[in-house]
């Protein structure tokens, strides 16, 4: 996209088993791999990983694929994944792809309601 925003991540650790990442900018084909790399590095020893997505810009399908990989890695490391402060655009993407419950840890259920137009 013409005015792509670079991805920045700010890590804080409220306690030794919890990490919070403030994600700012676009999560897309060009940037998302960086987030996955950081998560893979810091995941060992964590019990909870919070992605604070308040500053998230555009998230494309590759960005979603990376979120799914973060979820898979977190599960393998027995850490819970929390997607906090999801912007509306991401929420819609997660609803349309039926990945919201999977990503936020609840058992996957099919959404019967039609997504908002």
């Amino acid at each position: 996209m013409s005015t792509a925003r670079p991805l920045t991540t700010t890590w804080t650790t409220p306690d030794e088993h919890t990490a919070k990442v403030a994600v700012e900018g676009d999560l897309d084909f060009d940037t998302a791999d960086a987030l996955l790399r950081e998560v893979a590095e810091r995941l060992p020893g964590l019990r909870a990983l919070h992605l604070d997505l308040a500053g998230l810009g555009f998230c494309d399908s590759y960005g979603l694929s990376v979120l799914l990989m973060v979820r898979r890695r977190a599960e393998a490391a027995s850490a819970s994944l929390h997607l906090d402060n999801r912007p509306g655009s991401l929420e819609r993407l997660l609803v349309v792809t039926n990945t919201l419950d999977h990503l936020t840890g609840v058992a996957t259920l099919v959404h019967q309601q039609t997504p908002e137009p």
Binding site: N98, T99, H111, T114
Partner: peptide, 27 residues
Amino acid sequence: GHPAPLVVRADGQVEQVSSQGTLVGVM
């Protein structure tokens, strides 16, 4: 996991198809 198709009716109404499901290849 795909955006729902749109239907164009003879009277000019445009409706969204009411189907939803999971993306394939991950879960």
